[in-house]
Amino acid sequence: MDKADSIRSAYIDYLLTNGHRPASVFLFAKKLKLTEVAFYEQFNSFEQLESAIWLQFFEQARSTAEAEALYAQYSVREKLLSFYYTWIEVLKANRSFVLMTQAQVRQTGLRQARRIGAAFRRSFENYVTDLLLEGRESKEVAQRPFVIDRYPALFFGQALFVLNFWINDTSKGFEKTDSAIEKAVNTSFDLIGTSALDSVLDFAKFIYQNRP
């Protein structure tokens, strides 16, 4: 475990035991038997530390999903499904932390939530962009200029939906979240795949260009 890792887990531990953020970096570092400088070498603030934790959840889910023997053979749709399932599994191990972050966001407002989620969002959108590129090659994703650039942001919205659904899920073993993921991903891929709409637009364009 490197230094950043140990600070992260100590921080989660502190949050869960005390129910709030440490009063100061100084106090927290002292508890860890570190100097303040050693903390600041890794993180600038508690906020950034939390941001790093969310990013780490993502990275862990992504690498675990990709390590699955079948992953390489999956279609893009299945790859994203597989990511979500693993992500939820990672979050499950940290459910108390997630619930606490949510409660905290309620108090401090969305702006802070955006800052905490920023690093995760960037990496997730990069990941989705790669998937979409792959999907264009495998024809799972229709070519739609301009609109296609908005997809990663929309998928991030989907990830937040999944997260929120799971937070509020009361079913046994979070089975309903599994269904929600399945349906959300299937719907999104049905929407971004070639559909009747593409033919309609193409036809309309043709008529427009060939008007007398």
Partner: peptide
């Protein structure tokens, strides 16, 4: 009902039996 996706089948196995079907 719509068929389960492969990732969900794998997940169901992992959760219940700890291993992937493969």
């Amino acid at each position: 009902a719509p068929p389960l996706s492969a990732p969900l089948v794998v997940r169901t196995f992992r959760q219940a039996l700890g291993k992937s079907p493969l």
